[in-house]
């Protein structure tokens, strides 16, 4: 695995909190997925591709926006792998790559004023500390 792929993989795993080694290749995530035919990479492939550091094709895949985040795969996975969280982490990677949200958790403070709702501050910190 190239060092770039390794870095990307570690980033995705850290952000999602998913441990793909727990996957036992049963395919129940893909069996349960309602958006299966809309995605070129199916939930079970997502898990092994992330494990192998094959992240670029996932970033370039339109399928990540077809995932409904219904979490059926998360609910039914017998091993607690949570494939939907990987999809979410890859989406986040795209957003960050676009440079639109180049913030870190430390940077959030600079934007604080009396107008920002507390909930927004908390979610900004949560989002950018991932």
């Amino acid at each position: 695995m190239s060092s770039k792929n390794e870095r990307l993989r570690d980033e995705i795993l850290k952000r999602s909190g998913v441990n793909p080694k727990k996957c036992m290749r049963c395919g129940k995530c893909s069996a349960t997925c309602p958006a299966y035919d809309e995605m070129e990479y199916h939930p079970h492939q997502f898990v092994s591709m992330v494990e192998n550091g094959d992240i670029e094709p996932l970033i370039n895949s339109k399928g990540i926006y077809r995932c409904l985040s219904c979490f059926a795969c998360v609910d039914r996975c017998p091993r607690g792998v949570e494939p939907a969280k990987l999809v979410e982490a890859v989406r986040l990677e795209v957003i960050r790559k676009q440079g639109a949200n180049h913030l870190t958790a430390d940077g959030v403070e600079a934007f604080l004023d009396g107008e920002i709702p507390q909930q927004a501050i908390v979610s900004a910190l949560r989002k950018y500390s991932k």
Partner: peptide, 11 residues
């Protein structure tokens, strides 16, 4: 029955 066939990569 909705299932996956991992070898054919099909639902």
């Amino acid at each position: 029955v909705q299932a996956s066939d991992l070898l054919l990569n099909k639902q």
